[in-house]
């Protein structure tokens, strides 16, 4: 079972003084799954993700990511995950090519691999003409797609996406989700937080956090059935309330 659960958390807890940000959450994510991690602002999502990425040590509980322990093996975790946040994580004053080279470099790709990856990405994202343009001159949608490609440049086992589609138009969001599906089909596990409930429908399974605990966890269709709702939006409102 361990092999199949690429993320595994049991009673994972994080306290800041007397404040319990994450209260004994347990869940597991299977390899290749698109896992939606939902919750209202302040529900404890960010704290949970930080623990899983090895940025923050849990107060108690167990968790493994890609088979590595979140207490002791954060170095290994970091090598096997990708991360992208709402802020797109690209350097505005670097060109497209330089950004790809930089991120490839810090994830330990060889020069040859970086070169191949760069050509591949420029081709697939159809931004070959813009390869020497500074990121700040690109449209938001391009930046976002490039940021995602860069987050998975080292073929991580898991990619964490923290509200990746904030502020983007619906068409670009749709294209973005196509990219997510493609990566998932290649075996990369996708762990995504979002505020858009239509996006929650695209996930294989969804958990909804509220006040530090996981209030619900299932496939979108089963959740809708259980809460007698037509959309994930309704489910979310019922739980968050």
């Amino acid at each position: 079972m361990e092999n199949e659960n690429i993320i595994y958390a049991e009673n994972l807890t994080k306290k800041f003084g007397s404040f319990v940000a994450v209260n004994s959450i347990s869940f597991s994510v299977k390899k290749g799954e698109i896992y939606g991690f939902l919750g209202a602002n302040g529900a404890g999502k960010t704290t949970a993700i930080r623990m899983l990425c090895g940025l923050s040590t849990p107060s108690s509980g167990k968790a493994t990511v890609a088979g590595f322990d979140v207490y002791k093996q954060t170095e290994n975790i970091k090598k096997n995950i990708g991360y992208m946040s709402q802020k797109f994580s690209l350097y505005e004053d670097l060109t497209v090519k330089e950004n790809i080279t930089f991120y490839g470099g810090i994830y330990g790709l060889s020069d040859k691999e970086i070169k191949e990856k760069t050509e591949y990405l420029l081709d697939i994202l159809k931004i070959g003409d813009a390869k020497d343009k500074l990121i700040k001159s690109l449209p938001l949608g391009w930046k976002q797609k490039l940021a995602f490609s860069v987050a998975v440049i080292h073929n991580p086992k898991i990619v964490f996406l923290d509200e990746p589609t904030g502020g983007v138009d619906p068409l670009t969001r749709r294209q973005f989700w196509n990219m997510i599906y493609e990566e998932a089909s290649r075996g990369i596990t996708v762990f995504v937080t979002t505020h858009y409930m239509d996006e929650a429908e695209y996930c294989n399974r969804v958990s909804i956090m509220s006040d530090g605990i996981i209030a619900a966890l299932d496939t979108p269709s089963k959740l809708k059935e259980k809460y007698n709702a037509n959309t994930m939006h309704e489910v979310f409102v019922k739980i968050a309330r």
């Binding site: 970091k78 090598k79 991360y83 690209l90 810090i106 330990g108």
Partner: peptide, 13 residues
């Protein structure tokens, strides 16, 4: 401020 620090911290650096 740009949010890139998070990415750096999550990376193997």
């Amino acid at each position: 401020e740009m949010g890139t620090m998070e990415v750096l911290l999550v990376s193997p650096l």
